[in-house]
């Protein structure tokens, strides 16, 4: 187990990487792919077992996407499904002893948040063109300052919310283990249970907010 606040790094091609974050990311990716493969290995028209679970997630996301983004949003469905499953797996593996969440590293969360925001702006420009730029200057051109602050705040809040929640959870697990004598496991267990809840909630929040931002860029505007 690593010391709090310290990360192992390696240097590769002159760049610095947090090796533990990368390992855990690959593990989480592996888990997600494994679950997806197992669930879709033997698809049938009449669903059974794991297939029900995967279908449930996909149908729920489809409903959300249709409600928030309209028909154009369907092409983003794989991205959003992937985002949700990856975040859920990442958040939860941090609770396994000797492992860490990829999402306890700001690089991961900020990376994902920037990816989402860049996608938002690219899709917005692609689908709406001039309208998209114009909407930053509404209702009056003065609002461009506020709008810019909002746009910059989006990835930062998205990234720090997830990062803070997950890192705090892991730190408190370590702190509680060191603080409490070995015969008093109740606070640790309680916190672990709460961390599981937090992991799920944060995965949902990140996904839903990403969807909301993307919806802004993608959905057809009837008002304009």
């Amino acid at each position: 187990m690593h010391d709090i606040g310290v990360r192992e790094t390696i240097r590769f091609l002159g760049l610095t990487f947090n090796i533990e974050t990368l390992k855990m990311t690959w593990l989480a990716m592996g888990i997600v792919i494994l679950i997806a493969c197992l669930a879709t290995r033997n698809l049938k028209v009449v669903p059974q077992g794991w297939q029900n679970f995967v279908e449930m997630i996909i149908l729920w996301l489809h409903d959300q996407i249709d409600a928030m983004m309209g028909r154009r949003g369907r092409m983003l469905a794989p991205f959003i499904v992937g985002l949700f499953m990856f975040l859920l797996a990442s958040n939860l593996i941090g609770l396994v002893p000797l492992m860490a969440s990829p999402t306890n590293d700001l690089n991961t969360t900020l990376g994902l948040a920037l990816l989402v925001v860049v996608m938002v702006h690219c899709l917005g420009l692609y689908f709406k063109g001039g309208h998209y730029i114009a909407h930053f200057f509404q209702p009056t051109p003065v609002f461009v300052v506020i709008n810019m602050i909002e746009e910059i705040a989006k990835p930062i809040t998205l990234a720090f919310r997830l990062f803070g929640n997950i890192l705090a959870g892991e730190i408190l697990i370590i702190v509680l283990l060191k603080l409490m004598p070995i015969w008093m496991p109740i606070p640790s267990v309680c916190w672990l249970a709460f961390s599981i809840f937090i992991s799920c909630v944060q995965a949902v929040i990140f996904t839903m907010l990403s969807m909301a931002y993307l919806a802004n860029a993608v959905k057809e505007d009837h008002a304009e």
């Binding site: 310290v6 790094t9 760049l15 610095t16 974050t21 990368l22 992937g82 690089n107 991961t108 990376g111």
Partner: peptide, 17 residues
């Protein structure tokens, strides 16, 4: 490295995702 430090990992993570 300190806790909040942005380095090339961010690129790797985007690529990974």
């Amino acid at each position: 490295i300190v806790l909040i430090e942005i380095n090339a990992t961010i690129l790797a993570q985007i690529l990974n995702f």
